[in-house]
Write a protein that binds this DNA or RNA. Structure first.
Lengths: 181, 181, 181, 181
DNA sequence: TATGAATGAGTCTTCATTCAT
DNA sequence: AATGAATGAAGACTCATTCAT
């Protein structure tokens, strides 16, 4: 079925994000290939996880670039970021939620840099008066990823329609649950 | 040292939430007891996980009761709930994040009931005009737990001070990131 | 490069005698051919080993014939045998040292017949008074092969010059280590 | 059955010296323990091989000491060495014959030192006029081990009686196959 | 209650082998 | 003839669990 590396990685993420202890066996089955082929494509479980992290970081970096988060109105930038990153919510959720699976310093450092770009966006927004200053920018960044991951899970499990996901994320994150007139 | 069941469970949660594949060996060491004692206290890994789930549900249920979420102003009820549940954020994060570890239907059903109580709170709040109606109550409920889990991790990892955790959760969840005059 | 069966066999012996667990991959590389070609030439690892044995036996039989070990002075016959067999020391070492690799009865039986011809030579020599009778002829035969294999290894590893190998074998085997006036 | 480390090692040697590719499975069965226990006693195949080497070197060193090979008549010293080492012929055969299995430099260096002590004995004997000078001392040393290994195999396979083994080794090695009046 | 020995049941990984290109 | 993809079978290794001390 899925014989190219990337589709195997996506199948692996789909499984590992729900079941971090999944055996290579199950991952291979989920990808529609045999265990041995999985091991040929990725020599060892660690290598597989590493490549998932690399892919997730690449997607995340591309999304940050595409959203030009360093420019323009911070609130609009958050909306653009959500647009760009939601298609990869599952991947990003994996790396942010299961970051403890990565022994690899290269991955963790790269993730820190991504995180810093997002935190910088919120800091910029706080300085411009767009975002509330009572909450640390780092927490805003982390919360954004928490909700992004939540959206990813909810969509995958069918609890949230795909086309609602963007609004669910941005409306709640930006505006909160409380109604304003 | 920690010979009573509950402290062992808490130690296990602390380890398993960062390292879901941790061996019984390591769990025992983390709890300061021997493997054999761990096995005597909980007959098998599955039983251990099951009891963690049971404990988490009990704490969550107690928190919902203590917060009297079915009564009074919905926004105030959410604040009371956050107060009551944040001390158990780690436990709740475990059961909500790793819910697929539980084959046990009893646990999953009980969790659904807990979830329903929270969703009912938001539904009530939407009907009373307190919460925004653009977002499904079920998503509000899920997002609340996502942020609660995020707060739990951030506190455990030292990224968020304990006494800030309540405000970080409720302010963001209720009010969103955008500043109002 | 080495596309004829025999040179492949010799390359395989060279590798397998140092590294009995060598993978087919490595054998192919050592022979300068591809895995697929190796598999075409010899259908399976077992077949390869079998053919090595066959080749070794053929060489050994030819050496016994060429040395006319059944005729003439036994001591001279041993010298002729050493002459004839030393060029194939590596092959013979393989089959005598790794004989348990051969499940094949045909190989083992043929090896027994070869062994018997050598033992017969020593028996004849003992009866003619040329060889000592304190030592069983079968042990003389076995010891001869042990030393032959040792010479083969020593030459291959460069611990013994090629042109000394014959003397090293025959002098020690026939005359022993102790000096006579 | 054999639950102490040493008897497991000896069982492993017995198997590995005939079948260097034997699986851990078979080794465990030969030792009368389960695979898992074998892995607990020796963490990995490499560790097992390493410990065999260590044991063999210890035995060999003790034999060299016990035989006081550095003192007295060289021929008598060889006889004492044979006496002391024949009970461990199998172990010594393993390390001398399968030395390529040892990646470990510590083992190989230690073996070189053992080998050097034996070669020194022969060199001393050549200088004293006891041993023939036509043959390099290093070859005498190597040939001694070749025959020792051969004796070990022959005894194990029942081709040579245990009480004949010493004579078979020393008589052939010292005196050669040719009869003297 | 703790410790260490022991093992069945997996899991990870490699290899020989085949096939399509 | 060579290369790379693919896999069943097998080997190495780990772990949860039990028992004896």
């Amino acid at each position: 079925m899925a014989t190219d590396r990337e589709s195997v990685l996506l199948a692996a993420v789909g499984l590992l994000s729900r079941q971090p202890t999944a055996a290579m066996d199950e991952i291979a089955r989920a990808a529609g290939i045999s265990r041995a082929t999985l091991h040929r494509l990725f020599p060892g479980r660690e290598a597989l996880i590493h490549e998932i992290g690399t892919l997730a970081l690449a997607r995340m970096g591309a999304a940050l670039d595409a959203a030009t988060v360093e420019e323009g109105d911070p609130v609009a930038a958050v909306r653009r970021l959500a647009d760009a990153v939601i298609p990869h919510a599952q991947l990003v959720a994996f790396i942010s939620g299961e970051s403890r699976l990565f022994d690899d310093d290269a991955i963790n450092d790269a993730w820190d840099r991504v995180d810093a770009r997002v935190a910088a966006l919120f800091l910029r927004g706080q300085q411009s008066g767009a975002f509330r200053i009572e909450l640390p920018a780092s927490w805003l960044s982390e919360a954004f990823f928490d909700l992004l991951a939540g959206v990813g899970w909810a969509v995958q499990d069918g609890r949230l329609a795909h086309r609602e996901s963007n609004r669910a994320l941005t409306e709640l994150f930006l505006g909160g649950a409380v109604r304003r007139d």
